[in-house]
Amino acid sequence: MENVGVKEVILAVVTLDGKQPASGVPVFYAKDEEERNKIALHLAKILSGMVHDLENGSYIIVRH
């Protein structure tokens, strides 16, 4: 599959939702949007992943 980008792995979840359980994937809890964006940016840089918005308060960091 060297031409197609379907090797996605969710590396981490960054969320505003305190009730989001941590299961399997590391979850980072942020207290507000600004902190969430900052954590997501750092994680994306560190993990060479991309930030995706689930539009429910959670960001996921995905490696493509």
Partner: peptide, 8 residues
């Protein structure tokens, strides 16, 4: 595609 980060 889904672009999550507001800066991006």
């Amino acid at each position: 595609m889904n672009v999550g980060h507001p800066v991006s």
